[in-house]
Write a protein that binds this DNA or RNA. Structure first.
Lengths: 140, 140
DNA sequence: TTACAACTTCAAGTCGACTTGAGGTCAAGG
DNA sequence: CCTTGACCTCAAGTCGACTTGAAGTTGTAA
């Protein structure tokens, strides 16, 4: 497959495909003249990458998990650590979601004056500070 | 409170506090000489901001949710839309978390050869593509 | 065979959320 | 009164993940 066909089938721009190849996340089979040729398996890999990105993993992290070989024990630990991080983020997001829904239906003049809202936020915020709100999430 | 006291109490660096003020996320009561003075309520606001960040919201989004005034009807709709967005992201992250946990315990020689893993990934990836994996998460 | 669209490389730009650094101001303690 | 250190502003730098643009190459259709 030419790069543009991969782009079309995966929804990932050609520029991004080149970038991913440069980063070692995907690889082409070879060249037809000067043009990269990709195999079908790249589509599955791209789906995995997209999934990882959407779950908040960095390209480096995805790369290390996708890497073949390497110590499988370390891999498993990494996966579990990521899963736990994800879990914590999920909890915070659920709290946020509940807070937002409550705020939308709340009749208090200002959300911060509503005791229920404050309770929700307080419970959720506990973990927000010490998690340093940096380590668990990817870029927008 | 001087800015350094706020920094100490909240864990947020002074440079970030200035930045947040510039962005309109927090405001100081006034100046003592050239120095900003903050009220205690800023700590609560910072907790809310930290929570929002940790849940993956951008500063602009947090700002729009924290903003006082404006059409209350639009505000409520905005809050509900945000909550729904959050919900969808949560679902994807849960799928990812389950996928990671399964992968960590799976005995298949390679994750991609495990049918369960593939099923989880496929289900999760469905939403990952069309959401463009850009719109729902913040930066690492 | 020639034109051209689709590719190529490489350097530089963009965006969000900050941080860093240089150079300046000022209130309180000695 | 003068020093000092905590603050100030403003410009520029950083990081990850890409995108954009200029300039060059090439398979294919007319």
């Amino acid at each position: 497959m030419d790069i543009s066909l991969v782009a079309k089938r995966s929804g990932v721009p050609a520029s991004t495909l080149r970038y991913y190849e440069e980063r070692g996340l995907i690889c082409s089979l070879g060249r037809h003249g000067i043009r990269r040729q990709f195999g079908a398996e790249v589509l599955e890999r791209l789906a995995l990458i997209a999934l990882g990105r959407s779950a908040g993993l960095s390209l480096d992290e995805i790369g290390s998990m996708l890497a073949t070989g390497g110590d499988p024990l370390i891999d498993r630990e990494l996966l579990l650590r990521r899963a736990d991080e994800l879990e914590r983020t999920i909890l915070r997001m659920q709290a946020m979601r509940d807070g937002l829904r409550h705020a939308a239906n709340c009749t208090a003049p200002s959300h911060m004056e509503c005791p229920k809202f404050r309770r929700l936020m307080k419970a959720a915020a506990a973990g927000a500070f010490d998690s340093q709100y940096k380590s668990s999430l990817p870029r927008r």
